[in-house]
């Protein structure tokens, strides 16, 4: 099987090089090799969205992408999105609306919500619910998340 591959990519704006097995998922590498544990693993089969990362500008599931596929790519995790300030309005709205409880789904929710708002600056509640429907939250019942995304959309960036 294996052989170790060396990959080079940009991670949260910095050039990095990592040695990975071909079977290692991007989520596992980011968590356990890069130590960025905000990318959560809830199912490892592409259903829950907790492992969301931004790959070349698009939100993807880190558990469905192999680490080797990141070679040459531009990757952003929740830590990078948070530190850059680009999701600050969403984060503030999530805290203010208590749109999270355990916080396990939250990084994925924030990244997918940010993608929605970049595409559709004034989404309806139905559009928000639709956009969040690939991400499972077991704590909140979603309404507070929908409210928070709607509130963040009203904040001028």
């Amino acid at each position: 099987m294996s052989g170790i591959h060396t990959i080079k990519f940009r991670l949260n704006g910095r050039a990095v090089a990592k040695h990975v097995e071909p079977r290692t998922s991007a989520a596992d590498m980011i968590r356990h090799v890069s130590g960025l544990t905000g990318t959560h693993v809830g199912c490892e089969h592409g259903v829950c969205g907790a492992c969301s990362i931004v790959l070349d500008g698009a939100v993807v599931r880190g558990c469905l992408v192999f680490a080797v596929q990141l070679d040459g790519a531009d990757v952003e995790t929740i830590e990078g999105a948070s530190d850059s300030g680009r999701i600050a309005a969403l984060q503030a709205a999530f805290v203010d609306r208590n749109a999270l409880q355990c916080g396990f789904c939250t990084p994925g929710m924030l990244l997918i919500a940010a993608e929605l708002l970049s595409r559709e600056p004034s989404p309806s509640r139905e559009q928000i619910r639709e956009a969040l429907s690939g991400n499972i939250c077991r704590c909140t019942g979603y309404e507070a998340i929908v409210d928070a995304v709607a509130a963040a959309a009203k904040v001028k960036p």
Binding site: R31, G38, I78, S82, V95, N98, G103, F104, T106
Partner: peptide, 18 residues
């Protein structure tokens, strides 16, 4: 508001696998 919420929105919680 919950103090720990500001950790969680930055992906800075420490769960068992972390």
């Amino acid at each position: 508001r919950r103090g720990d919420a500001t950790l969680f929105v930055g992906g800075r919680g420490t769960y068992i696998d972390d």
